[in-house]
């Protein structure tokens, strides 16, 4: 290694060690991309060809037939729709609640500031399986009014509930996501808001603004970068949730795509080529988000792990 001190010269001459380093990194990248590339490759091959010439073989036909079959047979569009119905309100509500708490605990001095913050943060770190048994019972015994539904195609999205319970309802999944993820968002946003001087709040109060207005008009706009990062991250996490909807949803066709995968293997993904197509389809939305919003993504993660 020659000169490349941080902040120093950008492109160092290619010394043997550099070559070695790049060689190592390129090899690792190859290793890293391979499973995904293999999934894409398998998904584009018809099953008959894999059977005939083995799964490790040069391609004869490459087409989208597996995707078309999976898309139609497994009714994938509806599962994406289920995901959207859960994730959009989920992300919005988690961010609203978290920003409100973070605002209250950072801009004002309360006796219980630290405890509130700890309860939220620790709650988010618990393994979900620790709370699932009582939560499951709670969902089965919480009455929720059924207020009709919005119908899209053959699917029907109940407003609040279609069985008078929290169990087996979109709203139930949204609720647990919001509460669980509020923990993480609160932690991140409170770290962020600590850097905002209390002067702002104080002077606004003196000017006669009420607390709600200060949160909405003064503090939230300042938090836009953090909110954008968190929204990206939370979208991905809620999209990727497998457990909550697996347990708290009864009807398989109400499950978001990630949880629905569990029952698609064997039933619709009748061979590995179709399994590959299903996996790729399920992976596309978060990968798109990642490609478009990589910066937000990484910032969201690091905001959470490091202080401020």
């Amino acid at each position: 290694m020659t000169v490349a001190l941080p902040g120093g010269i950008v492109s160092a001459p290619l010394s043997p060690r550099r070559v070695l380093l790049h060689g190592f990194l390129i090899a690792m990248c190859g290793l890293w991309l391979f499973p995904l590339a293999w999934a894409v490759y398998s998904s584009l091959r018809p099953f008959s060809e894999t059977i005939h010439s083995g799964s490790v073989s040069l391609p004869g036909t490459l087409d989208l037939s597996n995707y078309i079959t999976v898309w139609n047979d497994a009714e994938l569009p509806y599962y994406y729709l289920n995901t959207l119905v859960v994730v959009i309100p989920g992300v919005a509500l988690a961010l609203i609640l978290a920003s409100v708490i973070a605002f209250a605990v950072t801009q004002f001095s309360w006796r219980f500031n630290l405890i509130v913050l700890m309860l939220f943060t620790a709650g988010n770190l618990l393994p979900p399986q620790v709370i699932i048994i009582p939560l499951y019972w709670l969902y089965l015994h919480t009455p929720i009014p059924s207020l009709g539904s919005i119908d899209i195609g053959t699917f029907s999205f109940a407003i609040f509930s279609d069985n008078d319970l929290l169990y087996d309802q979109y709203i139930g999944i949204i609720l647990i996501h919001v509460v669980f993820q509020t923990g993480f968002c609160t932690f991140v946003l409170s770290n962020y808001m600590k850097t905002i001087s209390r002067e702002l709040t104080e002077s606004a109060l003196v000017d006669g603004a009420n607390v709600f207005h200060i949160w909405w008009r003064v503090i939230l706009p300042l938090c836009r970068p953090a909110l954008a990062a968190l929204a990206t991250l939370e979208f991905t996490w809620m999209y990727n949730d497998f457990f909550w909807a697996l347990i708290l949803m009864f009807h398989g066709d109400k499950r978001p795509i990630t949880s629905a995968l569990n029952n698609m293997q064997g039933q619709f993904f009748t061979n590995y080529n179709m399994l590959a197509a299903g996996a790729v389809l399920a992976a596309i939305p978060p990968i798109l988000v990642f490609i478009l919003l990589q910066k937000q993504f990484v910032r969201g993660l690091t905001l959470g792990a490091t202080k401020g």
């Binding site: 499973p35 999934a39 293997q265 399994l275």
Partner: peptide, 18 residues
């Protein structure tokens, strides 16, 4: 290297089953 982080472990399971 970061790409797999955005995937759920369920999808990771499928990809590696292949």
């Amino acid at each position: 290297f970061f790409l797999p982080v955005v995937l759920s472990l369920a999808v990771v399971g499928f990809i590696w089953e292949l």
